[in-house]
Design a binder for these strands. Structure first.
Length: 564
RNA sequence: UGUCCCAUAGUAUAAAGGUAGUACAACAGAUUUUGAUUCUGUCUGUCGAGGUUCGAAUCCUCGUGGGACAACCA
């Protein structure tokens, strides 16, 4: 019997090992299948943002997916700007997108633009006209929309659909040459006005727009629509796996229709569920509103879910990559708990961020039995338990401590300071609170303590035991800085899903700006340094810092399991 | 009153017809000169009803629920 058990255990373990080794997401399964069947020798993916806004954490998921898949399967990834609508696009966005992708740690094989293919796309359109598969429609947008029908009623064909190939060819050329006004004509694919899929009811391929394009300038006055540009651009680049979000599922038959009828390289589209995260919004429209209506200071306001905001706030690229890895990829709508992102960050910073002391909300503590002319240089670690990596901090009679570390009448399980209570000052001495002073309004202004010289950190012979350790700064030695404490931007988990306007749920306390006391060593902080302000959280120098006027952003708080 | 996509703990994500697992969250305890970290443990799950099968989270049917689709946006 025990023999059987062993046998079972072994085979089960083996099975589990195998199972885990080949636990693939649905895209990896598709790719491995394609590779195994020899459909492709190498895979090629692309990340195709429209340069009309800043990248956010949802794009990071797509970036990690596209670049990650290509890396895993020895392929490569193109960065392609999907710039077919000149009125919304700008080089400012191109630059920020490139910067963000690089910062995340990915290198693209080629930098391409849909606008690179305008000539080729024009030729494709002519090909379809010649095949009798496209026509010029003179109708107004309203008429076209009306003739399109609804999801439950078929559309109807109009008179322009019967135009001859010759006339279509001529009119299309005239469209290109600027003979018509904005919106006067469009080129449409001739597919099926009764198709159940609305996207197949003679979709528009080209429209007239007299707009300056950030790359092609005024060369063109006709621009291809997304559906007529995207698949063909994929095809031109020999993209094997064109990965996009779920809202493009109904576009796939059209994607395939263009490729089939043009008889070009058969790229294939696959869709995954976009990232949603708690306590934020992810749509470009809403983010734009937050910026335009000054709910935040800009696209890189650290409360935004943009890549540039996370960078500014002090997130590391690897923490974001780890996050994207952990959330997985599937086809169901999801709402990821933001605490997973914070976990990924803390996990990393915990082992790397130098510890320093900073007092955010100061109150003065006076050690009555300490010589007022004395200063001691005390040794403290830069990282916990790393005794070889230390610095010194100055200790003297008057100190700053956090207001929150003193309670006149302590609650139960209170480990910190209170009248008669003892705590350790981190890396220094154990003290006992003897008295305190209040102002006229009853606010505590000064705390008086006694210290125990024999309890000195590292040389403690006092045999005193305390439950609490608090951080502190010497009044005469402390430096100062502005500190920005960020909290979540919204008060509800999914603001976009609320009945009311999402802006009704903005957290009024999402930013607290304070002037804090900091350890003098922080005056030498460099822009890339991550610090843990002991017991307060992780902090990072803001770009607003100037010599002598530093600004620190709180990247994330520490976990806090103390419930008051 | 259409078509398509989707449905596994609170949140995500595995299990390719054969043990429902992992992470985060939450909770409890131990350790701790950060109420951090670390360690240990607890909690909770296959949307429903039928069917196929020795056996169903997995395959089929019908429901139910959620999402997408009617821009000269992407």
């Amino acid at each position: 019997m025990s023999k059987d058990l062993n046998k079972n255990n072994n085979s089960n373990e083996l099975k589990r090992d195998l199972g885990e080794a080949r636990s693939l997401n649905f895209l990896e399964e598709i790719i491995e299948e394609d590779l195994r069947k020899g459909k492709y020798k190498n895979i090629v993916t692309r990340f195709p943002p429209e340069p009309n806004g800043y990248l956010h954490i949802g794009h990071a998921k797509s970036i990690c997916l596209n670049f990650g898949l290509a890396q895993k399967y020895n392929g490569y990834t193109n960065l392609r700007f999907d710039d077919t609508n000149p009125v919304t696009e700008d080089v400012e966005y191109v630059d920020s997108i490139k910067n963000d992708v690089k910062w995340l740690g990915f290198n693209w094989a080629n930098e391409f633009y849909s606008s690179d293919y305008f000539n080729e796309l024009y030729t494709f359109a002519v090909t379809l006209i010649r095949k009798g598969l496209a026509y010029i429609d003179d109708s107004s947008p309203e008429k076209i929309a009306a003739e399109k029908g609804t999801p439950t009623e078929p559309g109807i064909e109009n008179e322009f659909r019967k135009r001859s190939i010759e006339e279509n060819l001529l009119l299309f050329e005239q469209m290109k040459n600027g003979k018509f006004k904005d919106g006067e004509k469009v080129l449409r694919a001739k597919i099926d006005m009764k198709a159940i899929n609305m996207h197949l009811r003679d979709p528009i391929m080209y429209r007239i727009k007299y707009a300056h394009h950030h790359r092609t300038g005024d060369t063109w006055c006709i621009y291809p629509m997304y559906d007529f540009a995207h698949g063909q651009s994929d095809s031109i680049e020999h993209i094997t796996h064109s990965i996009c979000t779920l809202e493009f599922v109904p576009h796939r038959p059209l994607y395939d229709w263009y490729i089939d009828n043009l008889e070009i390289f058969p790229s294939h589209q696959y869709e995954f569920a976009r990232l949603n995260m708690t306590y934020t919004v992810m749509s470009k429209r809403r983010l734009l509103q937050l910026v335009n209506e000054s709910y935040v200071s800009g696209w890189d306001d650290p409360r935004m879910p943009t890549i540039s905001a996370y960078r500014r706030k002090g997130y590391t690229p690897s923490s974001i990559r780890t996050f994207c890895e952990k959330i997985g990829v599937a086809k169901r709508d999801n709402l990821i708990d933001i605490s997973l992102l914070e976990f990924c960050l803390r996990e990393e910073l915990n082992v790397s961020a130098q510890r320093v002391m900073a007092v955010l909300h100061p109150i003065k503590l006076i050690i009555d039995n300490y010589d007022e002319n004395k200063t001691e240089e005390l040794v403290t670690e830069n990282l916990p338990n790393d005794t070889n990596n230390t610095r010194t901090i100055s200790f003297s009679k008057e100190l700053w401590i956090e207001k929150e570390d003193f309670l006149e009448t302590p609650v139960k399980k209170w480990f910190r300071l209170a009248p008669g209570a003892m705590v350790r000052l981190k890396s220094a001495y154990i003290i006992r609170c003897d008295s305190f002073k209040k102002d006229n309004e009853g606010t505590v202004t000064e705390i008086h303590c006694t210290y125990f010289p024999e309890s000195k950190s590292g040389h403690d012979t006092s045999e005193l035991k305390v439950k609490g350790t608090i951080h502190w700064l010497s009044v005469q030695h402390a430096a100062q800085a502005e500190v920005r404490l960020y909290d979540r931007l919204f008060t509800v988990e999914n603001p976009a899903m609320e009945e009311a306007d999402f802006k009704n749920f903005i957290n009024p306390n999402s930013l607290e700006i304070i002037h804090a006391y900091i350890e003098p060593v922080l005056l030498k902080a460099k822009p890339d340094d991550h610090f843990q302000f002991i017991r307060n959280g992780y902090f990072y120098l803001d770009k607003d810092s100037k010599p002598g006027a530093l600004v620190f952003n709180r990247t994330v708080t520490l976990k806090d399991s103390f419930k008051q």
